[in-house]
Amino acid sequence: MLQYSTTQEDSHLTVTFDGDFDIEATELIQDTIKPMLSDYSIVTINLSKVPFVDSSGMGLLIDLVRSMESSATVVRIAEVREEVFEVFELLQLPEILGEGTFV
């Protein structure tokens, strides 16, 4: 089950996820994370503790990034593990979310 922790620095929030970013994370993302992030101007999503993703999980991630961008929040995705990034690249996630999103 996906868990998360946050650290805040002025209006910059870092959310660190821990666990698999998959279909089971749907509720957490939609009901808890999404409403929480809209108040910050910069959000960094740290994926260093995410070893696995599935297609629903990536759908959630795209949805999350897009909804924040529509509320003018700058989103960065940080510390993606190499093997997870390979999956992202196969799906051209960097192109979908914009090359600058991944740091």
């Binding site: 279909i23 089971e24 999956v87």
Partner: peptide
């Protein structure tokens, strides 16, 4: 993708 180490098949 199905062969990727970090890709979970659960939702499929």
């Amino acid at each position: 993708l199905l062969k990727s180490a970090a890709f979970k098949h659960t939702d499929i």
